[in-house]
Computed example of a mutant assay.
Amino acid sequence: MSSEQKKSSFRHRLHEIIYEADTNAGKVFDVVLLAAILASVLFVMLESVESFDTKYHTFLNIAEWIITILFTIEYILRLIAIKKPWKYVFSFYGIIDLLSTLPKYLSLIFVGTHHLAALRALRLLRVFRILKLARYIGASNRLLVALRASRAKIAVFLFFIVILCIILGTVMYMVEGEENGFTSIPRSVYWAIVTMTTVGYGDIAPHTPLGQLIASVIMILGYGIIAIPTGIVSSEMTKTVLDVNTQACPSCLKENHKDNAEFCYNCGSILNEE
Rank of each mutant, 00 (worst) to 15 (best):
L133V: 02
S184I: 07
T113D: 14
Y136D: 03
E179F: 13
S140I: 03
P186D: 09
I167M: 10
V145W: 08
G112K: 02
S140V: 07
A152C: 07
L116W: 03
E176L: 11
E179Q: 15
R187N: 14
I137V: 10
V145Y: 07
F159Q: 12
T183C: 04
F159N: 12
K153V: 10
L133F: 01
F157G: 11
I130H: 01
A192P: 07
L168T: 05
L122K: 09
S188W: 03
G138T: 02
W191A: 08
Y190K: 09
I166T: 08
K153Y: 15
T183N: 08
S140D: 12
M172H: 11
V111H: 06
L147P: 03
L116A: 12
H115V: 06
R135G: 15
R135Q: 07
V162H: 14
R151N: 09
A155W: 02
V127S: 00
G112T: 01
C165K: 12
K132R: 14
C165A: 15
Y173A: 05
F157T: 01
L164E: 14
A118K: 13
R135H: 15
R123S: 07
A121L: 15
R187S: 12
V175L: 13
V175C: 14
G169S: 05
L116K: 09
M172S: 11
S150C: 13
R148Q: 14
F157A: 05
I167C: 15
R129S: 01
K132L: 01
V111Q: 05
H115G: 13
G138S: 11
V162M: 13
P186W: 07
E179P: 15
I154Q: 10
R187A: 05
V127H: 00
G112W: 02
A134V: 08
A192M: 03
R126P: 12
R129W: 02
T170K: 02
M174P: 07
A192F: 00
T113A: 04
S150I: 02
L125T: 15
A118M: 15
R129G: 09
K153S: 12
F182C: 02
V156Q: 11
L133R: 00
V145G: 03
M174F: 07
I137Q: 05
A155N: 09
C165N: 14
G181A: 08
L168W: 06
F128H: 00
G181Q: 03
L164Y: 13
S184L: 06
F182H: 01
W191D: 07
V111E: 10
T170I: 06
G181T: 12
L116S: 15
P186T: 03
N141Y: 00
L168N: 10
G177K: 03
F110E: 12
M174D: 11
I163S: 07
I166F: 03
V175H: 05
H115C: 15
I163F: 02
S140E: 13
L122S: 07
I130F: 06
S150Y: 11
L158T: 08
V156C: 07
I161N: 15
F160I: 06
R187I: 03
N180T: 02
L158Y: 04
T183L: 07
R148K: 14
R135D: 14
E178N: 08
Y173S: 04
W191H: 11
S150T: 06
Y173V: 01
V171E: 08
I167Q: 10
I161D: 12
A121N: 08
